[in-house]
């Protein structure tokens, strides 16, 4: 089971679907951010699986996953400061209450 490409791809697809469900249902912005992290991780898993089983150059997939991790770090820092700003301005981080961009 740990030796086949498809099992890793199924894990990745399941993780992506769970993250998608979280982004669609949760209204708390931090919970949406957590779901987004799940989606990014599912993409990392599929990159690494393709790196082991399909790519000829075994460094390429790892370099891509490093880029994904770096982008996730940048995204989380910006998103968290935006969420804290919204929390200071509106006293709530419910996505339904952040309908206008006027602050």
């Amino acid at each position: 089971m740990s030796q086949s490409l498809t099992s890793y791809l199924f894990i990745s697809a399941a993780l992506f679907s769970i993250g998608l469900f979280g982004v669609l249902t949760r209204r708390n912005l931090v919970a949406m951010l957590i779901s987004l992290e799940l989606i990014l991780n599912s993409v990392s898993i599929s990159f690494m699986a393709f790196n082991r089983f399909v790519f000829a150059d075994k460094s390429l997939g790892q370099v891509f996953v490093i880029f994904i991790i770096a982008l996730a770090a940048a995204e989380v820092s910006i998103a968290l400061s935006l969420i804290l700003w919204l929390h200071r301005k509106k006293g709530s981080i419910d996505i339904e209450k952040a309908k206008d961009l006027r602050g």
Binding site: A14, L15, I18, G19, F21, G22, T25, R26, I34, S35
Partner: peptide, 8 residues
């Protein structure tokens, strides 16, 4: 999968 389901 359990962690992901709980996280969501």
């Amino acid at each position: 999968l359990t962690g992901a389901l709980l996280a969501v």
